[in-house]
């Protein structure tokens, strides 16, 4: 099965969710340092938002991806589902978890700054949002029956 985590960019909140599922993030100790070390964190050109990013394989051999769906999150989640349906992929072969609700104010600010090409400043804002996003992501994963380590 392939599991897709969705957020605004595919390289912030959804990567946190994927990291939690894959066991790359364990607890909140040294959280910021751990997150900054995850491959792909904040490594996004805004022109490439939408392109699926392969994060890794979980213990059940599911392939884990993240996708950026920009700001129209519910509509774009529907588009992801529609494309997959059009390709002819069965429901059992994929799962889609939208964690856009967990995007923090700091990440929104970071995105606005990133659009102005002030990348260092944007990175600071993204890093500030990590803790609050983690708290919001965990209940979404629990609700979706996604295991976390």
């Amino acid at each position: 099965m392939k599991i897709f985590f969705l957020c605004r960019t595919g390289h912030h909140t959804s990567l946190l969710a994927a990291g939690l599922h894959l066991g790359l993030i364990k607890g909140s100790k040294g959280l910021r340092h751990v997150v900054l070390g995850i491959r792909g964190w904040n490594d996004i050109n805004l022109k490439d938002v939408g392109t699926p990013f392969y994060v890794g394989m979980d213990k059940d051999n599911n392939e884990i991806y993240t996708i950026g769906i920009a700001s129209n999150s519910f509509m774009m989640e529907r588009v992801v589902n529609e494309i997959i349906k059009l390709i002819g992929i069965e429901a059992e072969e994929r799962r889609i978890i939208n964690v856009s609700e967990a995007v923090s104010g700091w990440t929104r600010i970071g995105l606005a700054i990133k659009k102005m090409h002030l990348n260092s400043l944007a990175k600071m804002a993204f890093n500030r949002g990590i803790e609050s996003e983690l708290k919001k992501v965990q209940p979404i994963l629990r609700k979706s029956n996604i295991t976390t380590c």
């Binding site: 392109t51 991806y65 774009m76 588009v79």
Partner: peptide, 26 residues
């Protein structure tokens, strides 16, 4: 032939669609 309304997300849609085709080996 299909039609889609995707608001202002044309680039995101095209990236996503081509990416998903690749992911599923289509």
């Amino acid at each position: 032939i299909y039609v889609l309304g995707r608001r202002n997300e044309s680039k995101v849609f095209e990236n996503m669609a081509t990416g998903l085709l690749e992911v599923f080996g289509v």
